[in-house]
């Protein structure tokens, strides 16, 4: 089976609300694909459609070329974490995974293996109802890994994790992709994906806004700008302005210059005898690049902004 998720032209309405408006993207093996967008952008709905839980009005979603409902023992093909709280509190962690294993014809020994991989072996015989959110997330990850699937689909897996848990989760996602799996991870916080995702599918209002590599996205948002540190801010600004650059002040002694490459900036300043201490390529953060992209697509914006 090809380790891919192909989503094409999904449309879905809930009453008057358009949840999915032509959602299309492909998740490829061997990398972590971040699925990012503001709340209400359609991330969870898309995941539910991929898993055959919700039916789309139009379009289709395929796992390794086949619709989810056509998969026998689907957890051997796709592992998913949708909602870590979705378990019956009276059952122990081990029993929770045991019924799942039985549903896929997997041996009970597999349950102990995944409990160990997520670090829950000592809590295996405790009732899941008493687990912290972080422990539930780990149990949910264990359930996703149960069938050793080539495709993983995780909805907000970092939610509720403590700093140590976040570091663990990042390492796990990297290693899963390193094993050649296709990993789709949703988040409404771009910062959570910095250093984890290789590729991004950015969504807003039920459709894809950008489908791009993380490095490309940052480069594009940075737009070949140059940061300049100088004590003579006014002189530098007028010299660069005369040379045809656009200049914006970003601090007491800092300017951001666009329209001129770094070498030209240095040459212009030297020619006018303007002193400066630093010239560097301007890099936006992933968060900033994301905000630039989704500026139009945020559905619920605070009134104060």
């Amino acid at each position: 089976m090809r380790a891919t998720i192909e989503v094409s032209g999904l449309r879905k309405r809930f009453g008057p609300t358009v949840a999915l408006d032509g959602m299309s993207f492909t998740v490829r093996p061997g990398r972590v694909t971040g699925f990012v967008g503001p709340n209400g952008a359609g991330k969870s709905t898309t995941m539910r459609v991929i898993l055959g839980l919700d039916a789309a009005d139009e379009g289709h979603a395929l796992i390794g070329g086949r619709p989810y409902r056509a998969l026998r023992s689907p957890l051997r093909h796709v592992g998913a974490l949708l909602d870590a709280g979705a378990l019956q509190p009276g059952r122990t962690a081990r029993d929770h995974l045991l019924w799942l294993a039985r549903s896929q014809g997997l041996p009970a020994g597999r349950v102990d293996e995944v409990l160990e991989r997520v670090g829950l072996e000592s809590a295996a015989r405790r009732r899941a109802g008493g687990f912290s959110l972080g422990m539930r997330q780990r149990l949910g990850i264990a359930a996703a890994l149960l069938g050793d699937p080539p495709v993983l689909l995780l909805d907000e897996p970092v939610n509720g994790l403590d700093p140590e848990g976040i570091v663990w989760m990042r390492g796990l996602l990297r290693s899963l992709a390193g094993e050649g799996r296709a990993v789709l991870v949703s988040s409404h916080l771009m910062g959570e994906l910095e250093g984890t995702a290789d590729h991004l599918v950015v969504v807003g209002r039920g459709r894809v806004i950008a489908d791009t590599g993380v490095a490309d996205l940052i480069a594009a948002a940075s737009r070949d700008r140059v940061t300049l540190r100088t004590a003579a801010r006014a002189a530098a600004a007028s010299a660069l302005d005369r040379a045809g650059a656009a200049v914006a002040a970003t601090g007491q002694d800092a300017l951001v210059v666009s329209g001129l490459p770094p070498e030209r900036v240095v040459a212009v300043l030297n020619a006018d005898g303007v002193p400066f201490s630093e010239v560097a390529a301007y890099r936006v953060t992933l968060e900033q690049a994301y905000l630039d992209l989704t500026g139009d697509a945020v559905e619920y914006r605070g009134a104060a902004r």
Binding site: L75, G85, L87, L100
Partner: peptide, 16 residues
């Protein structure tokens, strides 16, 4: 008991 906790989604994902 499964709808109340949301576990039904796990059930139906595991057993489509």
């Amino acid at each position: 008991g499964e709808y109340g906790t949301g576990m039904i989604r796990l059930t139906l994902a595991a057993m489509p």
